[in-house]
Amino acid sequence: MKKYDKILLLSLIPFFIFSIFYFNINSDKKYLTIINREGEKNYSLLENKIVNVKGDLGDLKVEINNGKARVIESNCKEKLCIKRGWISIIGEYSACLPNDVFIIINGRSEIDGISE
């Protein structure tokens, strides 16, 4: 083995280990992202809870239960965010436009997007 082969091999190994590690820990992990005017916040979908979210018209309540999420309370007129029901798979989303609030399941997925 020549000197440059060694250098190349040594430099590749950390990348190799990192890529395998990174790929494994990120696959099949999903989490909820809630976006409002204040910014973006991530929540685990493993812990069942109710999250209060500040909207333009008032607070919304988002329920996380059993790996799924949904808006359960909003003071918007349309209530489309509530009618939307559960979102569960990576890329699925629900929006409350009057409140400027958007929730989406994030993570690595085979699916590049969801049309609706």
């Binding site: 799924k68 798979i89 699916i111 997007g113 049309s115």
Partner: peptide, 22 residues
């Protein structure tokens, strides 16, 4: 409304109209 752009195959799900998921 989705646009996929690039030199590979893309997978786009269609929403389940009566529940969660696709």
């Amino acid at each position: 409304n989705i646009l996929v752009w690039g030199d590979r195959k893309f997978k786009i799900g269609v929403k389940n109209p009566r529940g969660d998921g696709i």
